[in-house]
Design a protein around this nucleic acid. Structure first.
Lengths: 144, 144
DNA sequence: CACGATTCTTAGCTTAGCTAATAAGCTTGG
DNA sequence: CCAAGCTTATTAGCTAAGCTAAGAATCGTG
């Protein structure tokens, strides 16, 4: 429909701009030594799932397998994740957070969240509600 | 307030996740030869403003000056932007889109928008409304 | 059991972003 | 009026994120 398409076009522009800028802004809040955005996201997914293969994790994170190899490599270097052989399938590998990974996760995640949470705390209830609903819609769109 | 802080924390997590994934997803829609996300955004800002110095453009884009030097370099290579000396201040440079830049902008922008616009067109009016309002709030937060 | 498919990794590339350092030009205080 | 200090832009050099192509190992199946 012409109207809906027009609105959708406009909205797409605005939304792209908004997520580009907010992404940049949030990334800037990372202190040296902290986990990056992508590393933290991968670790989060592993925490939630308990354990995943690289392929599964790549799918969840919407990234190609070689990209995930790199990200997991960084996490492994820091002792936050372990690779163990798959019990029956020799090709596969099981990725799981270590005890240290679980511990560090909580604190890193908190620090990483701080700046944005502060900004959001300064908004009104209804603004936060809009953001929450929008976030859910965006996650759903990203899955498509 | 405890409640607001709690909600803000939760929301911050969800929102970070949503923009990370949507950003990745949208970036994936780029065909080879097209302008990147960042290049397109810089070109857009130049179009809107007419002309800007690198410093001004970097500020608008929320990026450090050397980063902008690179992005503008790519645009200049492709003949989409010109650098001209500042009339009175010898240190500064004026960046402006070329005629070709203005022409290509429209078409690239359209293509780049397509995938997301399609997804958004499939949503309901009220969902689009939520996203629009959220985008405005996010832009405002990103400015902080 | 050989061949095709799957899984993971390696290699090699581009882009995005940063800080530190440089070069040039501007501005101002003595 | 000029030296000292600020501002602007760029360069150099780094890390990280992402991709594709290609490899090695393993699995499953005809």
């Amino acid at each position: 429909m012409a109207t809906e398409q027009g609105t959708a076009d406009e909205l797409a522009r605005t939304l792209r701009d908004a997520i580009l800028r907010l992404n940049r802004r949030v990334r800037q809040t990372r202190a040296v030594g902290e986990l990056t955005f992508s590393q933290l996201s991968a670790l989060t997914s592993l925490q939630l799932a308990g354990a995943l293969t690289p392929r599964e994790l790549a799918d969840v994170e919407r990234v190609q397998p070689p990209t995930m190899t790199k990200i997991v490599g960084k996490l492994e270097e820091r002792g936050l994740v372990v690779r163990t052989p798959h019990p029956t399938d020799g090709r596969q590998v099981i990725l799981a957070p270590t005890e240290q990974g679980r511990e560090m996760y909580a604190q890193f995640e908190k620090v990483r969240n701080e700046w944005l949470a502060e900004q959001l705390a300064g908004l009104s209830d209804s603004e936060r509600d809009v953001l929450l609903r929008a976030a859910q819609i965006m996650q759903q769109v990203a899955r498509a």
